[in-house]
Design a protein around this nucleic acid. Structure first.
Length: 466
RNA sequence: GCUCCCUUCGUCUAGAGGCCUAGGACACGGCCCUCUCAAGGCUGUAACACGAGGUCGAUUCUCGUAGGGAGCGCCA
């Protein structure tokens, strides 16, 4: 139904500010954003900062900054506000308290006085006897008197949701299709921690519902958690959103994308100089197939986003593909934009010269050195090219250069005439001697940009016999 | 251990019983262009995890097997 534009689509991205924006999260954020934009719906940003130990303001700020960098702007969120404010869970305590009271009053949740140590032990025992490590229900059957007794002693407690017995929870996942789980496989879970803060299963579900979210796109790792949230919303009589679980993002070795794979956060790619639109184009096709193969600007992605073509299988992130989109994206930039991207105040000629030989800003550094700095010692391969040409060749080259007025055409035609050589036999030794490398931007322009004494010195250094 | 999910070229994937001698993109190789690289054009190598079952016919349906992953947390 949502695919037919019948209901207004409201999607959200709900990160917890405990680190920088992971690529996998950036991808689900992109998909959620695109879904909302495709349907003319709303995209909400909600900060899940209930874990005060790990949540940090600087992470939240960086998260929002990186989202903006990607261009994924939100209609409602902690900074822009909206009808469901506040959008930081740390500020929604009052809302949660009301729901906790309702659940407790209705006998749908109960206080649990078990200590973490007891729970740990219980889990260990269950695991050892080959059973799923679930909450044993110790405190579920406590009488009012027993509870009162513990309360009077000041025993700390959590609040657990009383999972209904013998129920079958069914739902249709947007990407996985029909799902069915048995409530008996699910233990009573904590919805309020000892310190009074709400736990993920709870606040995540009730906020989605309360904020009017219609489509929740998230990682596959939440699929088996979904029945919990569905039961919770049902117990509260709240509307359930539709859920879609996207395959996880893996590293090149097939293991979940983690630090040891190198860059894993949007921020790291940003800092290395990847363009946001390159990252977006790559993410757009990881676990999603569009009806177009080519590069798309963000503004055109919504119309080519197809929720029904979201992938179930986990996808590997390969940097070589990102680099492809980076190259394509770079080609679309003006010289001014490339200059700003390089960030070194380069001349227009220099920018035009190197822009097709550069993937990241750092790649321009060697060419800057070629033009106005020092050459690194030649590597074996380049050394061979120079030696094959011979000292005599460079002696002629120095003379030719003096008469060429930095014009490569003149220089090569003199060399051609004097040495009888042609083509690559002339160009390659010159390229290597002048730039130190066998590959690179157009030599004629490079020569123009070089200081005359630099070029002269480089040619001369090969003109003498060792 | 229990529950659930996943499995097409190296990678991202198309494919929803005959259109598939399995298509595209990236990467890789070759050719053309060219001083080189890049770009561009042409072109090549390369995949349905395995086994049964149903069907006239299976990449597509069913069931197993194997491999991978997730969940079972006072993390989200």
């Amino acid at each position: 139904m949502s695919l037919n534009n019948e209901t207004p689509v409201v999607t959200r991205f709900a990160p917890s500010p405990t680190g920088s924006l992971h690529l996998g999260n950036a991808r689900t954020a992109l998909f959620s954003y695109l879904w909302a934009r495709k349907c003319g719906g709303k995209f909400i940003l909600r900060i899940e900062d209930t874990d005060s130990e790990r949540s940090q303001a600087r992470f939240r700020d960086q998260l929002m900054d990186d989202m903006r960098w990607l261009g994924l702007d939100w209609d409602e969120g902690p900074d822009v506000g909206g009808p469901s404010a506040p959008y930081s869970q740390a500020e929604r305590g009052e809302f949660y308290r009301g729901l906790f009271a309702r659940l407790a009053a209705g006998g749908l949740a109960y206080p649990c006085y078990c200590t973490p140590e007891e729970l740990e032990l219980s889990r260990k025992l269950q695991r050892m006897s080959g059973k799923p490590p679930r909450y044993a229900g110790t405190c579920r059957g406590l009488t009012a008197a027993q509870r009162a007794e513990r309360e009077s002693r000041g025993t700390p407690s959590t609040l657990r949701f009383a999972v209904p017995e013998n129920q079958s929870i069914e739902f249709t996942d947007v990407v996985h299709g029909p799902q069915r789980f048995a409530s008996n496989d699910i233990g009573d879970f904590i919805i309020r921690r000892e310190n009074g803060t709400p736990a993920f299963f709870f606040c995540n579900a009730v906020d989605d519902s309360a904020m009017g979210v219609t489509q929740v796109l998230r990682g596959d790792d939440h699929l088996t958690n979904t029945p919990r949230q569905l039961m919770l919303l049902k117990a509260l009589g709240m509307r359930c959103p539709e859920y879609g679980h996207v395959g996880l993002l893996l590293g090149e070795d097939g293991a979940p994308l983690s630090k040891r794979h190198g860059s894993t956060s949007a921020h790291e790619f940003r800092e290395r100089g990847f363009l946001s639109i390159a990252v977006l184009n790559h993410l757009f096709r990881l676990g999603h197939t569009s009806d177009v193969d080519g590069w798309l600007p963000l503004s055109e992605m919504p119309q080519h986003f197809r929720p029904q073509h979201l992938g179930r299988a986990p996808a590997r992130f390969e940097e070589s593909q990102l680099i492809h989109w980076q190259k394509v994206s770079l080609e679309r930039l003006s010289a001014e934009a490339i200059g700003a991207w390089l960030g070194a105040g380069d001349s227009t000629q220099f920018i035009d010269l190197v822009r097709h030989n550069v993937v990241l800003p750092a790649d321009a550094i060697p060419w800057r050195e070629v033009v106005r700095g020092e050459l690194a010692p030649l590597r074996a391969e380049e050394q061979r090219i120079v030696e094959a040409a011979g000292a005599e060749f460079f002696a002629v080259a120095v003379e030719a250069y003096e008469r060429s007025n930095t014009d490569l055409k003149v220089l090569t035609s003199i060399l051609k005439e004097r040495t009888g050589r042609k083509g690559a036999d002339i160009f390659m030794p010159l390229r290597v001697a002048l730039t130190g490398q066998a590959h690179g931007p157009e030599l004629a322009l490079l020569l123009k940009l070089m200081a005359p004494e630099t070029a002269r010195r480089r040619l001369l250094s090969h003109a003498k016999n060792p």
